[in-house]
Amino acid sequence: MDRRDFLKAAAAAGLGLAFAGDMAGAPGIRNRRAAAGEAPARPDAPADIVAVRNGEPEAMFDLGIAAMGGIGRFVKPGQTVTLKVNVSWDVRPELAGNTHPGLVDRVVRRCLEAGASRVYVVDHNIENGQRCYQTSGIGDAARSAGAMIAPAEAERYYQSVPVAGKILTGAKVHETILGADVLVSLPVLKHHGGAGMSGSLKNFMGAVWDRRYYHRNNLQQCIADFFAVRKPDLNIVDAYRVITQNGPRGGSAADVAVMKMQILSTDIVAADAAGARLFGRSPDSFGHVKIAHEMGFGEIDPSRLVARRITA
């Protein structure tokens, strides 16, 4: 109990510091203001999108989240947090097929320090889940940091929900994605042979049981449709090592570029728009990014948000 009380006190102190930003920080409000062309209230106001470059993933996260008003802006004491990571593949961290394990470790710790009652790490792995968590280093990282790895390899962990999408009208969504107080998207940025790119939007294909449905019924539209269910409260796009060809699995060092970047955003579409630009592409050249924007799930022009750029 002592430790928990201490953490709560620490989180409350952090919350106090971030309080002003927190009130104005609801993404919807901020977006509308930006869309209306209003200038941000203060130059030091908490950012809604941050790009951090030239650091290690852990340090870049700490810098980025501080610029957004601290983790306490998103995680309140006693809340449950789900981190939707990307751990689809049985590959080593250097090959960049999965989220950086050090980053997962850091985010879990920060959430717990903010007073989260429980942190789940979840992904509907594509390759064998046990092997994916082991080889990627994410299993050890998440467990040692204090998170629970949510089982995701059986249909019974997914709940049927209606989806107000154009094509996706219902889906079986993982219980921790639906049930958590705070949803954090923690993907790794990469090239994707089918969807073009994979960032925070594509990350949520690993939140559903039936991926084949997406592939069979207009992949780009289904990826975007999902966000009628729920949008993440915070997106952290790992672009430290990035698969630029033969994605999303990669598997060879030749497929990987070291970008040393990280995008943090309250807005899932803006996060992926920034990701697209890291590839030197226009965001609307990727179908699901364009559609998600048109459906009102977020802003496709990151500069319309309160944005900050940080060099570590």
Partner: peptide, 11 residues
Amino acid sequence: GLEVDAGEGGL
């Protein structure tokens, strides 16, 4: 793929 010239030190 998506050609990116990140060089040694990142973007």
